[in-house]
Structures are given as C-alpha cells and as structure tokens.
Design a protein around this nucleic acid. Structure first.
Lengths: 255, 255
DNA sequence: CGAACCCTTGATACGCTTCAACAAGAGTGG
DNA sequence: CCACTCTTGTTGAAGCGTATCAAGGGTTCG
C-alpha cells in the first residue's frame, strides 16, 4: 500500500523541435542548482539564454560513457540513474531501453546537477546516465558558460561551490564504502533523510534503487530492514519507514 | 632490498616564524596544481603573495575534522595521509603523533592538492590529515583567493578544472569500490601507475599504504600479489613490481 | 486468467577480515 | 660483536558479511 507514484506517466512523445524550447526554467531551479543566495537578474538571463531542455522517456539514455562532454547537465524533473552499462552482448540485445543490463550506482532526483564536472575537462563522460522515469534534462553548453563566467565572476564562485560540494559528497560516500558495513550505511542514510526532528521517512524510490545507492543487493537491504525492525529501531510499512529510536540509530551509524 | 627512502629525514625543527616564509614556491609546483598550461606572470605573483608554507614533521597533524577551513591546502613535498582518527580514547593517549589510531584512506604525494574543496563551503574540514613523513604544506587563504579570482577570470576556470578532476577521480574511486573486487582494483592500480609502455613499477609507498588506498588489509594485498605472481602476470621483488603481461592485467582490471 | 513486476525469505558460496604466529631487516645499547 | 626490540611483510586457520541462486507471495495490467 501507498506506493510512490512511479512509472505512471507514459512518455508524452511531444514532437517539440528539441532545440528551441521557449518555456522558461523557473528561478527555483536555478537556486537549487547554484545554492540558496538567489542569483542576480542578469545572471539568470544569461543562464536562461544558454539553457536547453531535453525530455527523456523512461529508460532513455541521457548520455553514455565516452560521449563528448560539451554541456553541464542537470535533472529538471524526474529521476536519472548514474552508473555503467554492463555491455550485455556486443551485437544487439535491443529490448525496451537500449543496450545491455544497466548497473545503477546513484540516482539523481528533482532539480539537481547530473554532471557538472566532465564538461570542464578534455575527456568525455565517464559514466552512463539513464532515465529511471520520464524526466526532463537541462543542458548548458560549456562554451557559453565560459563567456558567462567571465562576465559574472560571482557566478564563478557559485559553480566552484557546487563542485566543492560534489567533492565533499563523494568523499563522504567513498569513506562510507571503505569504513562502514551495510547496516551502518543504511542507518546513516535513514538519518540523513529523516525530517529534522525526524520520525517518518517516505521512500521516493524503489527499494532496489535504494539498495543500489547503498551498494548492496535488494536481498540484503530487505534482510537489514527486517533486522532493524525486529531490534525495535524502525517500523517498516511498505514504502514508509518510521524511525523509532533516533539515538540508537545514530550510535549505530557512527560507531 | 631497495626500500623506498622513507623515515630517513628527522624533523629539522627549524625555528622559522612560520608566517613569513620568503622562499619562493617554484613555478613547477603551481603548474602541477593548476594544470599544464603555465599560468601568466601576474597570476603567479598573486599566488606567490598569498602562499604560506608550513612544515610538518612525520606524524604531525595537518588538520582535523571540524577545523575551520579557511585555506586551500596542497602538499609541496613529502606525503600526507587523508583519513579519519578512530578516536582511540576520549581522554589522552598522547603518544608520539597525537590522538588515537589513524585510519588511512588516501595518500597524497609530492606537489598535489590536499584539500581544495572544504574552504569554499561554510563547513569545516570533513577529514583528518596527517603527515606520513616529513612534509611541507602550501596554504592559500580563501579570502585572498576570492580577490585573485575576481581579478583573473582565467584562473577561475583553472580551479574549476581542478575540482572537476577531483570529482572525476572520486567518482572513479567510488565506482571501483562498488563494482570491482580487490583483485580488479589492484590490477587497475598497477596499470595506472605503470610507465606508458610499461614494465616496471617502483613503489613509492609502504605496502600497507597501498593496501589502504585499495581499501583492503595488508594481508589481503600480500595474498593477491602472490596470486598474480604465481599466475605469471607480475614479478614482485621487494618494493619493485614488474608487469609481465599487460594484456592479461587489462582484461582482469576491466572484466 | 496469465504475465510481468517487486519484494521477501532461505540455503549456500565466496571474498575478505581478523587473529595469531613467524621471518627478515633496521636501529639501539650493552 | 651480539642480544634486544620495533617495524614490515608474509602465511595459515577461522569467522563474518554479502552476494548469489532459487523459490514463493503480493500487485498491477492486459
């Protein structure tokens, strides 16, 4: 009961010419991407002019490893998975999505950067990205961004901060993978997502996607949830998890 | 035989006033930090004025988690370990180095950034850093850097590229941790460090540090090396490893 | 209804860690 | 010089943590 509303919307298949999308990107999105202090009006104008929106239907590929990376990419709406294609067979399996089996590593929701690092380097993309549900992408050509950054040094620092935050997040993720076992990572994840004074967590994703984020199999996640539940720390009901003992979870996550 | 020259130099204990170090940082260092196209003369001057050098003796702490982060930090010479202090006892063990046991996660050599991300965010450092041998640190106050970046937009993009590269590296590391087993990671590491047409690799670090980088125990590393050796892929003699079969290693690393 | 999902549960297998013991230098002091 | 200790790397045996494989139940949808 109470599943997250996923896979409901079928691909609208709108025949928009793809290049000239005149619908403006809301300011809230830019704020989500560049950080809370709202950008100046002319900075927003500049970004608005550069921005290109691309719609993806569920399972569609956003970019592949090795693709030339000449744009910063963000997810406007929906969810896009970052990971690697396990190159099923070299010839052509070609079922619904695309190539071989997709090995999910990280899921990017709502308004958030998908890849703001590849474009600054000579090399192409280093990962595959695939829509996990119908999604809209925001693309900013790096050549245009260079011009914009020269004109607005403030925005430069904003981007620097975005990348710095990415570095911090990834460092934390790597640390967790090296130092914590699956149970600790799960506890950490639950606490991070809990409402501040926190009691109830509603999963926005499938459990198998959560498992992928924690770098474990769905089976192990199921067992861990049961384990925490029978220890009285949480209460699981479908896609809603109630945290019963924050203190114990915290000591479990950090110990 | 042929150990790397480590732990040889005793702390010189030079009583330099620490703040005013007039010895100029060589240009090669700046190039190593900011990327190959050499910086312009006045950019170098600006950096030179900001730069502060700090000497660390072996085991000394560069910074601790939670410290206020108001400088970009790079390692000039020597090696500094990034990781976390496993808070041995809350009171005071206080033996040679500092607090409790240090859990190494990543080792930073020679001229290379140690932490160029924390300073751009409000929060403090998110990791501990400790000299693994006598080392010299380069510190750039972020407040001064902001001024410098406003004056030289080109340098802004350079820094952006540095951070983007960090993101790529960390993403790769996380991917390896999630998708590859220890043997694959070792093979990957050996190939990355091999000379281009590659045959011989001289370890610059202790094997236990290599193990830490690969996120395995020294025991496992030893077993893996023996395994690869008896498979005829490499030849280990002390701290020198000869790669005998690049093709096989490559297929092992990627498969 | 059957098909296609998703999640769960159990049995088993494998990778890696942990603990303990030991060999081989390097530094130290008698 | 030797005995002593400290450190590093190696090897073996035992055990934990997850993955893997297989089976079954619950939905949703055609």
């Amino acid at each position: 009961m109470s599943l997250p509303i996923l896979d409901k919307v079928l691909t609208p298949a709108v025949p928009i010419p793809a290049a000239a999308a005149p619908l403006p990107v809301p300011v809230s999105v830019w704020t989500a991407l560049f950080g809370p202090p709202r950008l100046a009006a002319d900075e927003l104008r500049g970004l608005q002019e550069l921005a290109r929106v691309r719609s993806l239907c569920s399972g569609a590929c956003a970019f592949k490893r090795g693709d030339p990376a000449d744009t910063l990419v963000a997810v406007l709406e929906g969810t896009v998975g970052l990971g690697s294609h396990a190159s099923g067979s070299a010839t052509a399996p070609a079922m619904p999505g695309q190539g071989g089996q997709f090995q999910l590593e990280r899921a990017i929701h709502g308004p958030q950067w998908l890849d703001n690092s590849s474009a600054w380097l000579e090399k192409g993309r280093t990962q595959d990205a695939q829509a996990l549900m119908p999604a809209r992408l925001l693309e900013l050509p790096v050549s245009g961004m260079r011009v914009l950054l020269n004109r607005h040094p403030v925005m430069s620092e904003r981007l620097l901060q975005c990348l710095a935050q990415s570095v911090q997040n990834l460092t934390g993720a790597a640390h967790d993978l090296m130092a914590k076992d699956a149970q600790k990572r799960l506890a950490t994840w639950l606490l991070q997502r809990s409402p501040a004074s926190g009691e109830e967590v509603a999963l926005r994703e499938r459990k198998r996607e959560l498992a992928a984020q924690l770098a474990i199999t769905p089976e192990t996640l199921s067992r861990l949830l049961r384990q925490l539940m029978s220890a009285g720390l949480i209460e699981v009901r479908g896609y809603s998890i109630k945290l019963l003992n924050l203190a114990a979870l915290q000591s479990l996550a950090q110990g």
